[in-house]
Every structure is written in C-alpha cells, then in structure tokens.
Design a protein around this nucleic acid. Sequence first.
DNA 1: CTAGGATCTAGAGTTCGCTCTAGGTCAAGT
DNA 2: ACTTGACCTAGAGCGAACTCTAGATCCTAG
Lengths: 142, 142
Amino acid sequence: MDEQSIRYTIGEVSHLTGLSVHALRWFEREGLIPIEVPRTSGGQRIFDADIVYWITLCTTLRETGMPISGIKAFAELVAAGPGNESDRLALLEAHEQAVRDRIAHLENSLSIIVTKSETYRAHIAAGTARGVWDPIALRAEQ
Amino acid sequence: MDEQSIRYTIGEVSHLTGLSVHALRWFEREGLIPIEVPRTSGGQRIFDADIVYWITLCTTLRETGMPISGIKAFAELVAAGPGNESDRLALLEAHEQAVRDRIAHLENSLSIIVTKSETYRAHIAAGTARGVWDPIALRAEQ
DNA sequence: CTAGGATCTAGAGTTCGCTCTAGGTCAAGT
DNA sequence: ACTTGACCTAGAGCGAACTCTAGATCCTAG
C-alpha cells in the first residue's frame, strides 16, 4: 500500500458503505473498528481504504445476521494483532455455517410459501377460492 | 372438518408452535389472528387445529422476514372473508419474491465470507498469517 | 374442598441496532 | 472575513418484536 493512501471524510465513507454517518460514529464507539480512527488536527475523522474495506466487511457480516457483539469479538481479535488468526478463522467459519443454515431454512420456508401461493392460484383459477383450503374461512363457512 | 375438533389450551399451542404463551396472547392483541379466539366460560382461550395451522403459517412468514405489519395485513384480508383472494395471493407472491431476493443476497454475501475464510486458511497453513491480506494488521506492520 | 399450576388482562420493561438532538467546532469556497 | 455545510461529542430517543409483571381467576387432581 501507498504510504499516503486516499483519505476519506466520514461523509464519503457513508456514501461508499451505505451506512449513515451516525452509524459510522456509533460503530467506532461500540468498538467495531479495530483501530482508533485517526483525526485531523481539528478532530475530524480520517478514513483510508483499509478502514473502508473493514467497514464493508462488517456490513457483509451484519447483513448475513452476525450480531454487533460478534463483529465486536472479531474486531477485538484483529485489534489484538497477529497470533490469533485461527480464532478469527473459527469465528468466520462458525458464521459461514450459520449463514448456510439460514439459507437452508429459508429455502425450506420458501417452499411452504410457494405451496400456499399455488393453492391460492389454483383455487382462484377454478373460481372456487373458498372453503376447505382456507383454515379460517373454513370455520366461518361450516 | 369435524364439528368437535381437538381443543388446545394456550400452553399446548405454545409447545406446538414454539411461540411463548406471552407471544401468542400478544399476536392476538396485535390482530394477527383473523378471528376472535373463542374462550371457555371462565375466559380461557380455546384453540383448534385451524388456528394452530394459521399460527404456524404466521411463524413461517415471520421467520422469512415478513414484518408483523405484513402478517397483520394478511390476517385482515382473511378476516374480511371470501372475495379478496387475489389480494392475499399478491401479498404472498410479493413475500415469496422478497424471500428469493434475500436468499440470493445471502448466497452472494456467503461467497465473500467463504473467500475471506479461505484466505485465512491459506495463510495460516503457510505460516504467513500476517501482513498484506489483513487490512488492519497491514497498517500496524508497515 | 383445597392446593397449586395454568391462565387471564393490561401495561410496563427489555434488547437490538441504530437514529436523532443539542450545542457546539471545522473547513472550503467567494 | 464570512458563510455555509460538514463534522464533533455525548447522550437521549425510537421502532420492532417480544417478554415480563402484578394481581386476579380458573380448573384439575387428590
């Protein structure tokens, strides 16, 4: 990496990552960023590509359901420096499995929803969209 | 259906559906159940197979990310009785698509996480788990 | 008939993950 | 120099989805 890499303001990072500036400041306060974000002499944050990359990774982890506490644990490992890479890997692998499980569960649920939709479609097409196939309407109609 | 179908207490429904009794009462209060749940003379709820089925469907919708407000909308359509089946179908199909999108997004994110894991594994195996591949360690080590 | 576990209502409390506010300071264009 | 929009800190507030509490009633087994 270049010694003088690109410097971003918090607003630019907000655009790059999709997180609000509030959320970015909050991420730092919560310890999700493994270094102290450097400041200008006036106290304003200076982000570089590395931190933006880290934040992007954080959002990927968040979007896949890792709780803030999990990301914080990961950040703490990184902050602790070299030597705990297998711990970091274990954390990632556990999350990887959690995501796979989540996808499998969603696919399962999806098929239930699809079946329900198909039942509705069939009955609507047949003009018989009442009765046995609707457990609640059923009650009303008996 | 049988005129005298099986009757369940709220505790039994809790076991059957995995929702807490608190959550079940809250679901009713929030209007997620399209009928008034009948009561004993003493005021205790009596659930039957139809309601249990409905609640199970609700949990499937919830687990796939439908907000309570969405389920409420669906319940209101069902409560309104026959005639709006295509609205119900539209609601289900919209959610179906949302779930497909969610799965696609998760798969995308998963591949990012997998790549990150693989990088860690490769570097740990090579005994070079420091430096260039870790954006934060990178900073510390330059 | 009585004990005690299950249930009732209505509303307060909790957790998560931000979002917003107040009361300033900073910095870039004119 | 001045204006104006971005940024600062610390903490309060918020929406979603429950969860828990209090104080009372129900109901089933012994």
